[in-house]
Amino acid sequence: MTIGEHLTQFGGLQVQQWEPGQPLGDTATTIHRIAVDYDDETAWTDKFRAFLALSGVEQSQGLVVGLWTDENMDGDSAPMIEALTAAHMHLPNLKTLFIGDITYEENEVSWITQGDLSPVLSAYPHLTHLGIRGGNELSLGQLHLPELRELIVQAGGLSAEVVREVMNATLPRLEHLELYLGEENYGATSAADDLTPLLDGSRFPALTYLGLKNSDHQDEIAQMFAHAPILEQLDVLDLSLGTLTDEGAAALLDSDRVKTLKKLNLTHHFCTEGMMEKLNALPIEVDTSDHQDDEDDWRFVALGE
């Protein structure tokens, strides 16, 4: 799996690329994406400054941050973070934010260096939708976003520290949690046990979609959550894009709580044909597409490099 296209919508709003000299789009339906190209002569911070000078920019409901440097993406993200943090007075209505809308042609996801985003997240306490792509040096700090409904973190590998920051976050209205946990070769250091705070459902009581995806510990995660009380509040359990085998699938198949879901997403997996037939016979929607051949016991997550 590669991410080959930029966002076209996020948080229920259309995403529109913006360049200096262009007018502000309809802020009722549109959020703007600000990015640089490799041959761009204008820095991201200069583009962002020009955007903030637009008449009506204070009505903007969201922002998408694309490529923020024309250098290697292991470069310094501090200027972007500082500019975004300082702009909070100009963007009082900002509720939707995606940082790192970067395709593989611009930079592989495992090479994106995010840095410490806690100043940004503190500056915009009314966020309802937050997306982040890239896990290198990522930190969320003490995450306290009382109105957040959706949190997506995409990476080839998430550190244990970031996973624990999410587990300890204060997000009382969170409905959609989607973590691309990744594999060790691309920076993943968390263990399945780091997800324990989710099991009883009390951590995020409004949660209806739980995506614990793209993990090289997918069997262990499946076994942990197959009988967990949190399933009773979920509509969707998403264990896709990882290294799930019959071992983890058997635990899901044996669970009465799994049968209370509306959907079980297992896309990109290493289960046998026989196990797929059993899973697809469950009385809920089950997605077992993108079956992978388990050649020489080599299993891989869908989004790595």
Rank of each mutant, 00 (worst) to 15 (best):
G187M: 09
A228T: 04
T189Y: 05
N265P: 00
L181E: 08
H291C: 05
Y38I: 03
A86T: 06
D193Y: 01
D194T: 00
H129R: 09
G56N: 05
W111H: 12
G25H: 07
L234S: 00
F98Q: 11
E161R: 15
L138H: 07
V286H: 13
L140W: 05
N185E: 14
E183L: 08
A35K: 14
D296S: 11
S255H: 07
T243N: 09
S202E: 14
S255D: 08
D246V: 04
G100T: 07
S202A: 12
P20E: 02
H90G: 00
E41C: 03
D296H: 14
A249Q: 09
M1P: 12
N136H: 14
L282H: 11
R49E: 15
H217I: 00
D40K: 06
F300K: 14
E5L: 06
K47M: 06
F270E: 05
N280L: 06
R173P: 04
S55G: 11
R149Q: 15
H227D: 15
Q154E: 15
A226D: 00
T288C: 15
A53M: 01
N107M: 06
M224P: 01
A302V: 01
L244E: 03
L252V: 05
Q22D: 01
K263W: 01
L174D: 12
P79T: 10
H227G: 00
G134Q: 05
F10D: 02
I31C: 06
G115L: 04
D70M: 07
D297E: 14
T170R: 12
H217N: 04
R133K: 12
R203G: 04
N72S: 13
W44M: 07
G248C: 06
Y124E: 07
T103H: 06
L151P: 05
L13I: 04
I112N: 06
G21D: 05
D74K: 11
L138N: 08
R33P: 11
P172D: 12
G135Q: 14
D296Q: 10
V36D: 03
T128H: 05
E277I: 03
I99C: 13
N93P: 03
L231G: 03
L13K: 15
D297M: 12
L127T: 10
A78C: 00
D116A: 09
E305V: 09
N214Q: 10
N265W: 01
L84I: 10
V163A: 10
L158P: 07
L158I: 01
L130E: 03
L171D: 13
L138Q: 07
T243H: 11
D74M: 14
L244F: 10
G21P: 04
P283K: 02
Y186K: 05
H32C: 12
L145E: 04
K95T: 15
V163P: 06
L195A: 09
W298P: 00
A281T: 07
L151T: 01
M224T: 02
T85P: 06
L63P: 09
P197L: 01
A50H: 02
A155Q: 08
D194M: 00
A250E: 11
E175C: 08
E273M: 01
